[in-house]
């Protein structure tokens, strides 16, 4: 089985900035995720309150999935902007 990259991605000047952004986004998501775990452990009753007609556990759970998608889209948009800016500057 081949485990290598299919293409060489070349020099990327935006790499460091993207890595930093990734760390920020990681912590943002981590807080939201840890919030769910913390409610379960410390204030279990809260999970049964109604939000938009469903219990908080369902809304928070689906919310975590949707948030991951949204965060991915934002991350992609910002990374693309970084690449456009920094890699173009270099070419210029």
């Amino acid at each position: 089985m081949h485990h290598g990259p299919t293409v060489e991605l070349g020099v990327d000047l935006a790499s460091k900035k993207k890595a930093r952004l990734g760390v920020w986004f990681f912590f943002l998501y981590f807080i939201f995720y840890a919030g769910f775990v913390a409610i379960g452990v410390f204030n279990y009753e809260l999970l049964s309150i109604k939000v938009f007609g469903q219990n908080l556990a369902i809304v928070y759970g689906i919310g975590l999935i949707v948030f991951a998608v949204v965060l991915g889209i934002i991350y992609n948009a910002i990374c693309t902007r970084y690449e456009n800016q920094l890699n173009k500057e270099e070419k210029a």
Partner: peptide, 12 residues
């Protein structure tokens, strides 16, 4: 959630 952690924290 784990998958997005891989993407943000390790991939780049």
């Amino acid at each position: 959630a784990g998958w997005i952690v891989a993407l943000f924290l390790v991939a780049e």
